[in-house]
Design a protein around this nucleic acid. Structure first.
Length: 556
RNA sequence: UAGGACGUCGGCAAGCGGUAAGCCACCGGGUUUUGAUCCCGGCAUUCGCAGGUUCGAAUCCUGCCGUCCUAGCCA
């Protein structure tokens, strides 16, 4: 697998420009990681691994307003789960605050930075627009000495927030607005989660980021496309003071996934407005949400690796992620039977009280997965959706007079139906063919349909949660005017089935154990609500490929 | 009507002047005690459009068109 970034790195190594690759993942600890972050971490981590380099974790904690230790712990937990091991201790931009300040002093002394006392609104006003140049600040030509004094005072906390700011002196008529004397330090009274009240001034991203990289010897600083416009700044700051190394920034397209949102702002809103049950809601694209939903770290790594890296703004269909996890779980998940929407099926010619036992394979594609015993009786649960009074053409499942196979067990033919007062089937009756024990008839007769079932004498009650797209629209980056993301919420993104039935074996499942429920999909025992033996709760990770749904949906 | 970036199959994405990889989706067909899995086959005479250079262009040049990013003391 090669992409433009790996090509650049291979070239740098071959030409001797770089001896050892150093990459980093620089999250701001102000939220939990999502699958978009996974693309960034995995890119940095796998590149370091492939090229025999070093990968580090560094918190970009330059804004005390919204950062916290809770998120730091969350990020590390998610990263460990994902399988990205960073070199040494996590780094913090806040560890470099003293050095940053020294470099700011260096800029001031060289006449390349100045203290601006314009009000924030004035700065905005005088910055100009994409088509109009900005206007110089009246304070732009202060002497280095005066700037030094003012800067020290600002550092000492002698000014109020917003009263002044340190700015780089570049050019107010630059075509790139970001280059129009960008702010370097601003005053913040907030307590920093690591440095406490030591600092009254905090460095801005553009000023700090390249320096953080330079201090750590980062060779290739990878970031997303929206920072492309920032690269001239990244370079300017590095080129105007004496730094220990000279990193280079490269930009790639961030991940956009269909039917979900990927910005921290939006995710936070979903949580705060209770549209989801927290950051680890199984519908969230957060790593902890996906983990709870049942995705494996392997599946996320595979997915990220498969979608590739480029500079094209694209939207990946979430179905592709589903394909990846299905492929993995098909190979690894043990098969079990569960009836999501149960209806009684009673065998009228079954010997009263008889229990039959069958041996069922745990995974038809993997003999090493072994077998389990399942008990059968004349009183069963079957899937309500597997019966139809008036079936369409090509229907293989239960219908009046129709013979189907009960998986691993017997052929049965529907004979009678009991309806409830509102006319819906309430119980099904059938006869079974004793000769078909094991699921095959000695006369060689074929049945097209095979359905799953549970014996009423030992089936266990369970809660099963079915998940679907969080949003009904694929591209959540394109909203209609005057609409917000909540206008696109899928009302059926979760469906809770409290009356489901599962095999006895499933009641003993451990939290986070995954299974394939025959004909229903892949499920995981919920990490928070599932309790072995007392309260089985399963989340649907993803359904099985459903060819029948496609056939049934066609006009024919 | 500024600057930057990007436009290859429905969705991703290779391709780097020698005549369009792969994956998903989709469409057939086979196997099947999961309408699952698995297997076989099909799926861009064409690379945003128009010119040009060349024996030869998705790849080079020119001009258009479209999309995204940028006017936080956020990152």
């Amino acid at each position: 697998m090669s992409d433009f970034i790996r090509q650049i790195i291979a070239d740098d190594l071959a030409a001797g420009r770089v001896k050892q690759v150093v990459t980093r993942f620089p999250p701001e600890p102000n939220g939990y990681l999502h699958i978009g972050h996974a693309k960034a971490v995995l890119l940095n981590y796998s590149i370091a691994t492939e090229f025999g380099g070093i990968f580090r974790l560094r918190y970009d904690d330059t804004n005390p307003e919204k950062e916290s230790g809770e998120f730091v712990r969350g990020i590390e937990e998610d990263l460990r789960w994902l399988g990205c091991a960073w070199e040494g201790e996590p780094r913090h931009a806040s560890d470099y605050f003293d050095q940053f300040y020294q470099w700011a002093l260096e800029l001031v002394k060289a006449g390349k930075a100045y203290m601006d006392n314009q009000m924030p609104e004035e700065i905005v006003q005088n910055r100009g627009t994409p088509t109009q140049p900005g206007v110089n600040s009246p304070y732009r030509n202060r002497s280095a000495e005066e700037n030094l004094v003012l800067l020290e005072k600002m550092k000492a906390g002698e000014f109020a927030e917003g009263e002044c700011v340190l700015r780089a002196k570049i050019a107010m008529d630059h075509v790139n607005i970001l280059m129009r004397d960008p702010p370097i330090y601003r005053i913040r009274r907030e307590r920093h989660h690591r440095t406490g009240d030591t600092w009254r001034i905090y460095p801005m991203y553009d000023f700090a980021h390249g320096y953080e990289d330079a201090i750590e010897g980062v060779t290739h600083s990878l970031c997303s496309l929206e920072f492309e416009n920032h690269r001239p700044l990244y370079d300017w700051f590095l080129d105007n003071v004496s730094v220990p190394s000279r990193p280079r920034q490269y930009e790639f397209a961030r991940l956009n996934l269909s039917h979900t949102v990927m910005s921290k702002r939006h995710l936070r809103r979903l949580v705060e407005e209770n549209h989801t049950a927290g950051w680890n809601d199984p519908r969230m694209p957060t790593l902890r949400g996906m983990r709870r939903r049942g995705f494996t770290p392997e599946s996320i790594r595979r997915f990220i690796s498969e979608i590739g890296v480029s500079k094209v703004n694209s939207l990946v269909d979430i179905e592709f992620l589903h394909f990846i996890i299905r492929e993995e779980l098909n190979a690894t998940a043990l098969r079990r039977m569960a009836v999501l929407n149960p209806i009684k099926l009673t065998i009228s010619n079954w010997p009263k009280g008889k229990i039959d036992t069958f041996t069922a394979e745990n995974n038809p594609g993997d003999a090493a997965a072994g077998h389990r015993d399942i008990e059968f009786s004349g009183e069963l649960w079957v899937e309500r959706d597997d019966y139809l009074d008036n079936p369409p053409r090509k229907w293989f499942r239960m219908a009046p007079g129709k013979e189907v196979r009960l998986k691993h067990a017997y052929f049965v033919t529907i004979t009678d139906v009991l309806y409830n007062p509102s006319g819906l089937p309430q119980e099904l009756f059938c006869t079974y063919d004793p000769e078909s024990r094991g699921g095959e008839s000695p006369d060689g007769r074929k049945v097209k349909g095979t359905i799953h079932w549970l014996s009423r004498h030992n089936a266990v009650n369970a809660e099963i949660r079915l998940y679907d797209h969080l949003f009904s629209q694929a591209d959540m980056n394109k909203l209609e005017e005057d609409k917000t993301i909540s206008d696109y919420l899928n009302p059926d993104s979760v469906q809770i089935l409290a009356e489901a039935k599962v095999e006895p074996a499933l009641a003993a499942a451990l939290p986070e154990e995954r299974f394939q429920f025959l004909r229903n999909g892949y499920f995981i025992a919920d990490s928070e609500d599932h309790a072995s033996r007392t309260r089985p709760v399963f989340n649907r990770i993803v359904g099985l490929r459903d060819t029948w749904a496609k056939i049934a949906g066609k006009p024919d």
